[in-house]
Amino acid sequence: MLRISNLHASVDGKRILRGIDLDVEAGTVHAVMGPNGSGKSTLAAVLAGRDGYSVDAGSVTFRGQDLLDMDPEIRAREGLFLAFQYPVEIPGVSMMYFLREAVNSIRRYRGLAELAAGDFIRLARQKIQPLGIDPGMLKRAVNEGFSGGEKKRCEVFQMSVLEPCLGILDETDSGLDIDALKVVSEGVNGLRGPDRAFVVITHYQRLLRYIVPDYVHVLANGRIARSGDRTLALDLERHGYRWIEERSTALAAAGT
């Protein structure tokens, strides 16, 4: 579904990603872990198409097409969803209007009829309920005045309404208490299926007790330093990121 090959990217001339290779098959969940500054969020931003990141080398294909060639809205319409680490507050735009516009933009792109207001409200109510979000939130401005936990839940709510084929979660677990973490994880687990894949970017191993990944990758210095199954996450928990970082620094030194 997603194939990242030798991806190099920089911000303001500073090299952040130094050759990422990652294959994500439909039906799988990949966890990407790593210390601060390892390039986790840059990877998410590059995949979603945020301005300000330049891709210096490599390629990304998404469902057989060149992802890097698409505008952010096209990526979304093709089925990519990024749950933001820091969701943006947009005063003056109601959650309801925003999300319906998003749903209908995607539906138009796929040649489907737009959802009427009533149908959309029914859909939204149905999706919001399991996440324990007050439906009154739909009338509020997008993310405005939401607590950190509310914002993260709301990202998962949006994902469940938009039903992407690839969900990228950028530190959706950071700053959540255990109850919120469980709710968010159940929301994600409910979306797992044979046609859908997830890239779960996280700093903490804790999340992976609730969203059990098929693969774990550890990012260090802009490269995937190690890949394995979920036991790798447990090793990391025991040893910390240091042993991975030291290894990758040695590798980088040897490689250049």
Partner: peptide, 29 residues
Amino acid sequence: DADAAFYLRSRGIGEAEARKLLTYAFATD
């Protein structure tokens, strides 16, 4: 707000529509 525009676009809303929505949001109060 470039961040707000990107957020809207990342959800599938086109660039022109995002700009229109943010302009409307600016004027709404």
